[in-house]
């Protein structure tokens, strides 16, 4: 298992380096996919099969595909490649690489390099067992076994995270966490987080919907006047139903009901008055791309 971990992590690191150094966007995305798959393997070796599957399905399968869609939609072609080549001079790398190396050193020192305090022993384990309000996991039941710090000839430098150290030495922790356990935790103590995540996804959905709207539809619609854009002949409008399926990226729906994504009417009525709901940055105006005065924000 450890061998697979190291090989996968090497692949991940190498692929990530390639991601950030490519000039062609599609190449970089493909390397990103490779990196994410390698990360999934790492998750698997760490005993998180559900996370590994999600990584592949959602991260590599949806998010990266989203990025691929956008790249293909923008269709920059050789222009962008030359542009990237022009931008990526070796001199550009010096500063960021130096900064990152400094941060790496500091992180390594903080996470790995300090001598550990003596293992805190019972108190830590009892802390863990005090959290009995959580769903009882069979792996958690025994308390005292993980107390003894295990000694082995291949000990890495003692971590400053004694909990971590003692935890992983615990034989129970070597068992992977099954999806069932994850599900029980998710809809048990973390159910509020699930609801919040769904709200977040809803917000993302609505925002992406609104931002991705085509300009033609705005010209036709009478608008609720917006003060600072009064000079444009057509003010901006509330979200109106338009045919956006061609221009809208497909929304992810890991935890959302399917029917919502096909609805063209905005589910929340407050969106009809965008002034109160959405900040200025995301306002739309008809000729935003062509007017000099509209610099300064993506949406306006």
């Amino acid at each position: 298992m450890n061998v697979i971990f190291y090989i996968s992590s090497a692949v991940a690191v190498f692929a990530t380096i390639l991601v950030i150094t490519r000039t062609d966007a599609v190449h970089a995305l493909l390397y990103l996919v490779v990196s994410l798959l390698a990360m999934a393997m790492v998750f698997f070796t760490l005993g998180a099969p559900f996370a590994a599957a999600l990584e592949v399905v959602i991260y590599a399968g949806a998010i990266v595909v989203l990025l691929v869609f956008v790249v293909m939609m923008l269709n920059q072609g050789p222009v962008s490649i030359n542009q990237e080549r022009a931008w990526l001079t070796p001199g550009m790398w010096v500063g960021p690489v130096a900064l990152s190396l400094v941060l790496l050193g500091e992180l390594a020192y903080v996470l790995v390099g300090q001598p550990a305090s003596p293992p805190v022993g019972q108190s830590d384990r009892s802390d863990g067992s005090d959290r009995s309000d959580r769903s009882d996991q069979s792996d958690m039941s025994d308390g005292s076994e993980g107390l003894r710090p295990q000694v082995s000839s291949l000990q890495p430098p003692v971590s400053s995270l004694p909990l971590l150290q003692s935890a992983i030495r615990n034989p129970q922790s070597a068992i992977s966490q099954s999806p069932k356990a994850v599900g029980l935790a998710l809809f048990g103590p973390y159910v509020i987080g699930v609801e919040l995540a769904s709200l977040l996804l809803l917000a993302g959905l609505v925002a992406a919907f609104h931002l991705g709207k085509h300009e033609d539809t705005e010209r036709e619609s009478a608008s609720s006047p917006v003060g600072q854009f009064a000079s444009s002949p057509v003010g901006q409008s509330a979200c109106r139903p338009v045919n956006q399926s061609a221009s809208r990226p497909v929304n992810q729906s890991a935890s959302r009901p399917v029917c919502q994504s096909t609805s063209l009417q905005p589910p929340i009525s407050s969106i009809r008055n965008p002034k109160s709901a959405i900040p200025n940055l995301f306002r739309l105006s008809p000729d935003s791309g062509l007017q000099e005065k509209d610099k300064g924000g993506a949406g306006k």
Binding site: A51, L163, N170, A185
Partner: peptide, 11 residues
């Protein structure tokens, strides 16, 4: 999560 042996990390 793996260190603790709990699914909280995956959550």
């Amino acid at each position: 999560g793996a260190a603790w042996g709990q699914p909280d990390g995956q959550v």
